[in-house]
Amino acid sequence: MIEVKNLNKSFDENQVLFDISGVFENGKCNMIIGASGSGKTVLMKSIIGLHRIDSGSIEYDGRNLPDMQMKEIRKLRREVGMLFQGSALFDSLTVMENVMYPLEMFSSETKAEMEKRAIFCLERVDLTNKAFDLFPSEISGGMQKRVAIARAIALNPKYLFCDEPNSGLDPKTALIIDKLIQEITQEYNITTIINSHDMNSVMEIGDYILFINKGRKAWEGNNKMIFNSDVQELNDFVFASELFKKVKEVNS
């Protein structure tokens, strides 16, 4: 479980996040939603300590990240997996080597055991050994996301962060990736936080939803409550598409 309280973050003069609080439970798909530029990525990177925050607390099962020394942060990060907005695979390494990287860096297993684990992770995300020796530039965007997921779960993380896991994917592939993240979250009881502005995935997997508007929390709840909210900004965001407008009409 991750608890964020009164988080503020600015870059020089420009304040991006204002007083954000939220509780992200384990075994659930927790989603941070909001328009482009609302501060989702900055919030996520602040929660993992890639950005230093101005004030507030971020507790990982009681351990407050802003209080930690760099050494302790590094230790905590070994319990964290992250899927980046652009996959962020190492382009000088093959698919297999990408997944092996965290293992070789931290695992005390033998080479054969590591390889077994890497293959297990790659197969868990439905990649076959045909892809193992290819470089990231040689595979499709959907496959890159899968490799990134495999790399993120290689060390059995307790916390999983996904920054727009289905940006740039077609709706069907996007759904498959969403489902995969959901399955893995439930299977291993991971605390998962997902950034998204895709209403399809919000409706599909959003157990807890935090809506950010211009750096402030404007609404929180789950995917069943979202259609009945009376927060104007949220409605503007959700019903920006004709399809969801229709859904609302049918619902009410």
Partner: peptide
Amino acid sequence: ITEQIDAIEIMGVN
């Protein structure tokens, strides 16, 4: 800029 450095940091690597 492709966040590969963040990916390394997030694993707890310097």
